[in-house]
Every structure is written in C-alpha cells, then in structure tokens.
Design a protein around this nucleic acid. Structure first.
Lengths: 188, 188
DNA sequence: CTCTTCCTTACATCTACCTTACATTTTTAG
DNA sequence: CTAAAAATGTAAGGTAGATGTAAGGAAGAG
C-alpha cells in the first residue's frame, strides 16, 4: 500500500522488507536515503531496527504507528526518529511528510548555477571556471543575485541601480556598466 | 528478562550478577559503559552498590524499582542515578531510556577540525598547533564556532556581531576585528 | 550623416578590511 | 581585599582591492 503511494508520487528506488532480518539485509545493499518503518514487526520492533540502521549510516526514518499504540512515547522521547504518522493516514499526508523530511535532511546542497562557461556558487560568492575559483565582490554579488532572481525577464538599468544602491540610486549608470563588465570577465 | 530485551535491541556485551558481591567482581572485570541495578538485592541495596561503582569509574546507572518502593526517594534526591524505571515496564520503555542515557553520557564525539596549520578542539576550546595547546577565550570561541557552523558560506560582520554580542550588537565592529586578529594569530 | 545605446578602457578615488598600540574591564591569584 | 594577569574594547591610521568616473568606440536606426 505504502509502496503504491510512493510510486505514484514519483519515487522510483523503493525496496521493501517484511522483517527486521530482511530489512537489515536490504538496507545494507541499497544504501537508502530514507526508511519507513512499522513499529510492530514479526521478529522485533521498529525502534531497535532503527538503532541498527543508524549504526551504519544516519539517514532519516519515518515511523508508522497504529493509533494509541505508542503515540505518547514518541512525544516524550526524541529518540532519533524524524517523524511518525498514525495509521490510518491519507496518501497525501504520507507524501507530504516524506518530502518534508527529505527537505530537512538533505537541504545542505548548494545548487551551483550552471552557465555556458562557468558555474556560480551563490553561497560562497564564487564563480567556478575551468576548475578555478574566482571570488565575487560585494557589488558584483548583489548584481548577479538580482539578475539571477529575474532570470529570463527584462531588468531595467534603473531597477538594477535601485537594487544595488538602494536609496538614491541615481548617477550610477556608468558604475553599473563597469560592474557588469567585470562580472562578464569572470563568468565567460 | 532484561537481558533478552537488551539482546534483541542489539546490545552485545552484557554481563549479569545476582548479588552486590558478584556485581562488583564482574564490574571490575568488564569495565562497563552502563549499569542497570535493582534496588533490592540479596546482600545489600542498589544505592550502596552504585556508590561503590562510582568510586572506580563514573558510568551511568539506571535503577529498576517496584512501584511505590522508593519512587519518592528518587524524586527527592539527585543522588547520582541517571534514570530509573518502575516495574512493570514495557521492553520498549527500557530500551528507550537506555539509549537516551547513553546518548546523554557518551556524546563525546569530538572531531578535531583540521586547518592548514592547526586543529581546533571545540569541546576544549583549544587550538592545537605544532603539538602546542593554545586556549581560546570565550569570545574567540563563540566567534570561531559561528564561523565553523557557517563554513563555506558568507558571514557578514553584522551577523557575527549579532551572534557574539546578542542584543544590541552595534558598535562592536572594531572589537570584532580585534578578536578575529587574535584568532588568526592562534590558528595560523 | 547624426544620434542613441551599449559597451570598453584607463584611471582616480575611496572604503572595507586589517594592523597596531593602548585603554578598560573582568578574572585570577596571593 | 588588592594586585597582577588576562580578556575585551577602542581609536587611529595604512593599504590593497573594490568601486566610481569619464572619455570614447562600435553598431544600428533614422
């Protein structure tokens, strides 16, 4: 049931297991990014399974629990679970929680913006060209950010001046061009 | 009974004892990381046993107690126990408490942060350079922590002042630079 | 052709970052 | 409690690199 919900939501690498033993075997093979565990299992319980999991790699874990079963335990102990969901639940609820967990757990990626000749790392204010790291200055960074946020749209000179110099953004048109020149030097 | 719960939860080095005398003998041999003690023992009580234990090494201790027995004692006195659990209890409850205690007591992963010329030990607020241990002052430690947590990202002066001086973080820009200077002196 | 817009170049200026030296406050030791 | 030591804060410059300016060129429209 859970599997079909996940498939419909677009997840593709799904593995299942019917027991603690099987789960450990499967997990060691596929290096999962997220585990969904039932608390009640034929040969053990989800908690101890979680602990075994966390020994090898710290991926997020979502628990399924029947109403009343151990709900209060969850609230009391932090215990390392990332979330739990009480059966019965709506498909949407499951997928929402999963995407929330994944977002929380793997948000530490820093999406490099790929250009023709280079990439931009906004977090570090660097452009990477031919493996070389070139720092951006403050104004350059501001400018590029504004341009990136408006990618594909028309951005007037006035709007750029406004964005970079804020109050009293007049008379900087030449400056702006100078900065754009320098940015271009770095990114192409 | 307790042993089987623990085994199922993945704990492997378990030793048991049926009396104070035996417990002391066993403990001296295996150098335990955690002790689970009954309060009532044939040749003494758990409290004095705990005291003996703590003489040699300070490992955490979990007490088993029958309902009503000494519950109030526990609440009144801190007395060094890390937790207690009232019989009868669910297997899950025991394992949850144990993992909580262990997490609390042995969260000592202390990864030295390696820099070019030195390493930083945040737990001890020390930097290690050429085998020499150089202490960090409070402010230096705060600053370095914030910088480390944001490693690779841009951290503005304002953000740093905010982090170090909290409320009213204004006018410390010079101070900040002085601290940074001193940190650099220590770590490069 | 002239005008306009976009762009480049070369250079002038300025400011953010950094250092130094010292003042003040807090902590420690006697 | 007092004195010494350590930590923290302040102020006054120096400087490289960031930013701003101005003069002008190329290309397209009219």
């Amino acid at each position: 049931m859970v599997v079909s919900i996940l498939k419909e939501d677009g997840y593709e690498n799904i593995a299942t297991a019917k027991s603690v033993k099987e789960a450990l075997k499967v997990a060691s093979k596929i290096n999962p990014e997220l585990a969904i565990l039932d608390i009640m299992l034929p040969d053990g319980d989800g908690f101890s399974l979680m602990k075994q999991f966390k020994k090898t790699k710290d991926y997020p874990i979502l628990f399924l629990t029947a109403r009343g079963e151990d709900e209060n335990k969850f609230k009391g102990f932090g215990l390392g679970a990332d979330d739990y969901i009480v059966k019965p639940f709506l498909p949407k609820e499951l997928t929402l929680r999963i995407s929330a967990i994944l977002r929380r757990s793997y948000k530490n990626e820093n999406p490099l913006v790929k250009l023709h000749a280079s990439e931009i790392d906004f977090d570090r204010a660097e452009v990477i060209k031919n493996g070389e790291y070139i720092g951006l200055t403050a104004k350059e960074y501001n400018l590029l950010s504004v341009l990136y946020l408006n990618a594909g749209k028309i951005v007037t000179i006035d709007a750029l001046c406004e964005a970079v110099w804020g109050d009293n953004p007049f008379g900087y048109e030449n400056s702006l061009m100078a900065h754009i020149r320098r940015i271009r030097e770095k990114i192409v």
